[in-house]
Design a binder for these strands. Structure first.
Lengths: 104, 104
DNA sequence: CAGTATCCAAGGGGATACTG
DNA sequence: CAGTATCCCCTTGGATACTG
C-alpha cells in the first residue's frame, strides 16, 4: 500500500493490511498454537529466509499482533507470541475460512 | 502473490486474494449500491487510471465477483455489476469492519 | 465511451554471506 | 541463535498517449 491515507475511510483495508504480508498468515498460524522461538518458526516455514522472516515479524510486532521477548542469554534466545490483539484475530480468520468453505 | 500453490492449504489467503488489489475493495463498494458503467466507476474513483481500472475489473471478473455486460451500441456501453458471489462478500466485509470497530 | 499500448518507478520479497 | 548486510528481480501499479 503506497499511501495509507488513500484508505483512511476503509476499515476493511486496514484490517486486511494487518496480514497482507507474504508470510504473515502462516506465521500467525504457527504462533496460534503457542509461543515460538525464531528458529522454531524458521523450521516450520522452511521456504522463508531469515531476512524476510525478520521483516514480517517486525511488522506484525509493530501492528501489535505479536510480542517479542528477548532473554539476556547466550546463545541469544527470542520468543514470539500472539498478543491478545493477535489472538482476537483468530475468530475473524475462522470466519473467513468458513465463508470460503460454504461456497466451494 | 507469486505462486498460488504456496497457499493451496490456506483458505484465508485465497479469500484475501479476491480483494487484495489496490482498488478492488473500493470498486466493490461502488458496485455494491448498484450496477455502473465503466465511466461511472471512473468518475467515482478519480485517482485510478483507466488502465488500472480495466485491470482490476478484469481480475474481479475472472474471480467471479463481478459481471461485465456489453451492449452492442455506439458509443460503446459496458456495465459492471456484482454477481451473487460478489454480493455474498458483503456480509463478510461487514464482519471485518465490525471486528475493527470493536477494538478501536 | 471504453478501453489499449508503452514506458516507468517503487518496493516487497528472495538468495547468499556475514556477525554479535 | 538470531539476526544484518547486500544485491537483485519481478510484479503491481501509475502517467500518458492513442484507438475502434
Amino acid at each position: 500500500m503506497k499511501n495509507k491515507n488513500d484508505y483512511a475511510d476503509c476499515p476493511v483495508t486496514e484490517v486486511i493490511a494487518l496480514f497482507a504480508g507474504r508470510w504473515k498468515l502462516i506465521i500467525l498460524r504457527v504462533l496460534s498454537r503457542h509461543a515460538r522461538r525464531f528458529g522454531e518458526i524458521s523450521v516450520r516455514i522452511p521456504a522463508i529466509s531469515k531476512k524476510v522472516l525478520t521483516e514480517q515479524l517486525k511488522e506484525l510486532e509493530a501492528d501489535g499482533l505479536i510480542s517479542r521477548k528477548q532473554f539476556g542469554e547466550f546463545p541469544p534466545r527470542v520468543e514470539y507470541a500472539l498478543t491478545e490483539y493477535g489472538k482476537s484475530l483468530c475468530p475473524l480468520l475462522a470466519y473467513i475460512a468458513a465463508w470460503k468453505k460454504e461456497r466451494v
